[in-house]
Each structure stands twice: as C-alpha cells, then as structure tokens.
C-alpha cells in the first residue's frame, strides 16, 4: 500500500515538475489542434454532408497513416499554406469582375509551434493510425516516370491541375498543392487515397478518379518525380 502511495506521489511530483500529467499530450493536441481539426472520426453517417460545412481544416484522426513524420514536425514549426484559396467550402473568396479570387486577408494562418511543442504534437499525431491495416493492402512500389510524360498525364489526360498545383505557376487553387506531396505524404497513403478517396473521407471534394491501379501508381510516381526535383 505504501509503495502504491509512494509511486502516486512520485508521479504527481514528476508531472508538477515537468508540467505534464498522464493525459497531457492528448490535452495539448486537443487544445492546439482540436478546434479546427477532427481528432476522432466524425460521425459521418449521422451528420451527412453538413459535416463538411462544419470543418475548418482536414481531419487528423488518421494523421499517422497520412503524413511523413519529419514533414509534420517541420511544418508545425514553419507552416505554409497548403490550400491556396483556403479550405473548402469555408474558403473565403472574393467575388470580383474577373472572377472569384482568394481573399488574402481572410485566409487562416496555421498556428506555429515551438520545436518542443511541434515534436510532442507530431509524436502524438503520428500514433493516430486507424487505417494501418487498409494501407498494408496497398501494393504501390516506387517507380520512375519521365517528367514530360508525367506532366502531360497530370495536366492534360487526368485534368488534376483543374484544382491542384503541380508547380507554383500551374494549377488551380481549391485543392491542396501537390508539388510538396512527396515530402508531405506517405506513398502508400497517396496511392490508397487516389484509388478511393471516399474510403478516407466520405465528404471529400476530391472526385473518385476513374482509373486503374497502374494509372494511379503512375500519378504517384509523378508526384515523386516533381517532389524530388523541387
């Protein structure tokens, strides 16, 4: 009994000294990230499409299956805009005579964390891996595609650049930029997401690409090729 009290007392002292309690990383992530990002799977079935309207940022409850750890830690310390016109449909657009343009003043700037906070948050998020089993079934393996053919495929044949940028000066504004995708995302995630985005997010505004596995892998290889030439 005395040992139990002693260990409890030691744990309390330790948490007082370090500022952490047992649940602290979860609390910290909830406080820092939870107001914009879903840290648990939303109840898509109950909320329907309205779930998307309540979102301010991408869900993070499968962050450990999606992001590369080193990228996430670096991003949290030096964030940059991933969605050039904000996150749809809450994106702040300005209606002008020349068309809709991003309203720079209304675009949300991502929180910037210290190195230690970024490390702690990254460690926590990378442990959120509910789809590991699903990812293990993806059979993408890195290949090579010529930049010329990959560019043609991405832009002309698949039309991905309607929404996504494969370089800073080409592509639309509503989807996440993709010239950083290779450094940001795990290859199997890119492949699995492209095969069926709805498996990851029933309210995604990414249309399900009508293409076979080989075509998906070519696109992943293209993202690798542009990522490695950045």
């Amino acid at each position: 009994m005395q040992i139990k009290y002693l260990s409890t007392l030691m744990a309390l002292c330790l948490s007082f000294i370090t500022g952490y309690s047992h649940g602290a990383p979860a609390d910290k992530v909830a406080e820092l990230c939870g107001s914009c990002h879903a840290l648990e799977r939303p109840d898509y079935e109950a909320q329907g499409r309205e779930e998307r309207f309540s979102r301010k940022a991408p869900p993070l409850y499968f962050a450990g299956n999606k992001y590369r750890q080193e990228w996430l830690a670096a991003f949290l310390q030096a964030p940059y805009p991933l969605y050039p016109s904000g996150y749809f449909p809450e994106s702040k657009l300005q209606d002008t005579a020349d068309g809709d343009i991003p309203n720079e003043n209304d675009l949300v700037t991502h929180l910037q964390l210290s190195e230690s906070d970024a490390s702690e948050v990254t460690d926590y998020l990378m442990n959120l891996q509910p789809y590991t089993e699903m990812l293990s079934q993806d059979n993408y393996s890195e290949g090579k595609v010529s930049l010329r053919m990959g560019t043609l495929d991405f832009r002309k044949f698949k039309g991905c650049d309607a929404c996504h940028q494969d370089s800073e000066d080409n592509g639309g504004f509503s989807g996440p930029i993709l010239y950083d995708a290779w450094s940001r995302l795990q290859p199997h995630y890119i492949s699995a997401f492209l095969k069926n985005p709805l498996q990851w997010d029933p309210n995604t505004i990414m249309p399900v690409p009508q293409m076979n596995e080989q075509a998906v892998h070519k696109l992943v290889d293209y993202l690798k090729a542009i990522g490695e030439t950045e």
Binding site: G99, D100, I101, A162
Partner: peptide, 22 residues
C-alpha cells in the same frame, strides 16, 4: 457550394477560383 463553386463560381457564372488557370 460544396462541390461546384470552386470552378463554376460562387454565383454560378463560370468564374470560379480555379477558372483563371483552366
């Protein structure tokens, strides 16, 4: 609003935020 305005515009006039580069 959710699926179409990115390209077709918030007022449906075809001048969505993506249109300038399409």
């Amino acid at each position: 609003t959710m699926y179409c305005t990115q390209c077709h515009g918030v007022h449906g006039n075809g001048l969505g935020v993506n249109s300038s580069r399409m």
